[in-house]
Computed example of a mutant assay.
Amino acid sequence: MRRRTLLALTAGAGVAWGTPAAAHPRLDLVLAADGSGDVTTAQAAIDAAPSGATTPYVIGVRPGTYLGQVIVPAGKTAIELRGLGRSPSDVVIADDRANGTLKPDGTPWGTSGSASVTINGAGFRATNLTFANLFDEAAHPEITNRQAVAVLTRADKLVFDRVRFLANQDTLYVNSTAAGVVARAYFRDCYVEGDVDFIFGRATAVFDRCRIHSLDRGSSPNGYVTAPSTDLTNPHGLLFSYCRLTSDAPAGTVFLGRPWHPSNDPNAVGQTIIRDSWIGAHIGATAWSDFGTWPWRDARLAEYRNTGPGALVTADRPQLARAEAAAAEIPDFLRGTDAWSPECARRAV
């Protein structure tokens, strides 16, 4: 398993980048690890934000690495984290724990508890930065439950613009507060990296022109891109539009996904739609997999108008009809009952 180092994750750490928020009229607060801003830790920046905000509270994050678990409470709404570096790699917010990592009381953290960043506040936005889980699988052979989440979302109307998500198993957990509750998240020009089920959950999540990169685990199967657990009452699960699905893994060793039924919930009828995207050769002729006793054919898994060496059309690769595709565009997934439309969202053409 490839090991991540802080040097590989970030650049520019330790450089002074100016003055606190008072000198930046478009920022409400500046986070800087070197002490040149208003606060030095990501959690302190979240804690400083007002509760119940209806307009964005903008936190500028200067280049550096910010270690430690971060939790955005439900009452902290409309927070924006804005990376102030030249690229998303200049700002890294990360932690280091897995499902099986033990808490101080000797019990495991579990999958949700492993998250480096947990977002419970609605209207959260992140731009131009990196979220990572630094758990090193090779260094901890004693830990068998290796799910290590970089970001867990439970809130509605979230936007991630030019953000990197780095981990191995279970990188990005897009969830909601309860089964049957719809929570929407929009990812634009993002990079998501992992191996097993690394984009998963019951949220409505749209990936627009993102790169989805499967790591090479050195085994077969090499992993699964998605593990949707969309509630049966929700017509909109995971949508990938104009994305690039890439990997260094051998041809045909990665699956597009498998349907996850948390606690064997029969109403978790997962949906993943991949459309108008480029798919690498790591995806084979059979692109979907059963999840235990749950057959993939009973889930809502489909493709439409994809290209690339892994975009095969076979009996095991369900395709949307044109009319179905016309009703499965980005606005259809995000609109909801309140006509939400992120200002950076783009319609498929």
Rank of each mutant, 00 (worst) to 15 (best):
A326P: 00
A167V: 01
S247W: 00
G100S: 04
I143C: 05
L81D: 01
L29W: 00
T118L: 15
S36Y: 00
N264K: 08
A115H: 13
D298P: 02
Q147I: 01
A94R: 02
R184E: 03
W17D: 08
D156F: 00
T10F: 00
R162H: 14
S220Q: 15
V196A: 10
A78F: 07
E80M: 14
V269W: 04
D170H: 14
G75S: 08
T54I: 09
S114P: 07
Y57K: 09
I93C: 13
A53Y: 05
N128E: 13
W294F: 15
F200N: 06
D197P: 03
V174T: 10
S289I: 07
A44G: 15
N234P: 08
G12P: 04
E142K: 06
I71K: 12
R125E: 05
R154D: 07
A98Q: 10
Y57L: 11
R211S: 03
T177W: 11
G180S: 07
A33T: 02
I199Q: 02
S229M: 05
L102S: 04
G60I: 00
L129P: 10
A287Q: 13
A285S: 12
A94N: 01
T253Q: 05
H261S: 06
L256T: 11
G218M: 05
N222C: 02
R146T: 14
A185F: 04
Q319I: 02
N120T: 02
Q43G: 07
L301C: 01
R4W: 11
Q69R: 15
V254Y: 00
T54M: 06
H140V: 09
V61Y: 00
R300H: 03
G308Y: 08
R3E: 03
G35E: 12
Q169D: 12
R258G: 05
Q147W: 10
R82K: 14
W288P: 04
